[in-house]
């Protein structure tokens, strides 16, 4: 299955996500007009959500993203883990939770 979602972070940028999923999240692509330093770290953020159940809540997703950002020394500008998680939850709105 394929789902799409988006979230406009207050005072920030637009985050769009495309999520491939079955019973778990199989792949996530995060796009938008935000900044992330270093840029290559986007892959680590996307991978951090893989394997989570489609019913996972926004808080759990945001925590996984936060951990990946910390591990990679990533700096987000104009987006937040919570904003990405909200967009992913939106993409999964017909699945799980």
């Amino acid at each position: 299955m394929l789902g799409e979602g988006s979230c406009k972070v207050p005072g920030g940028k637009l985050v769009r996500v495309r999520v491939e999923y079955g019973t778990t999240i199989e792949g996530v692509t995060i796009t938008g007009d935000f900044f992330l330093h270093p840029e290559e770290g986007i892959g680590a953020l996307e991978e951090s959500l893989q394997g989570m159940g489609v019913g996972a809540g926004e808080e759990a997703m945001a925590e996984a993203l936060r951990r990946a950002a910390e591990a990679g020394g990533l700096v987000m500008v104009g987006i937040t883990p919570e904003g990405i998680a909200k967009a992913v939850r939106g993409a999964l709105r017909c699945a799980g939770g």
């Binding site: 769009r16 995060i30 796009t31 938008g32 007009d33 935000f34 992330l36 840029e39 986007i42």
Partner: peptide, 9 residues
């Protein structure tokens, strides 16, 4: 377009 943007979108 920005590094993270979707070309098609």
């Amino acid at each position: 377009i920005g590094y993270f943007q979707s070309l098609a979108q």
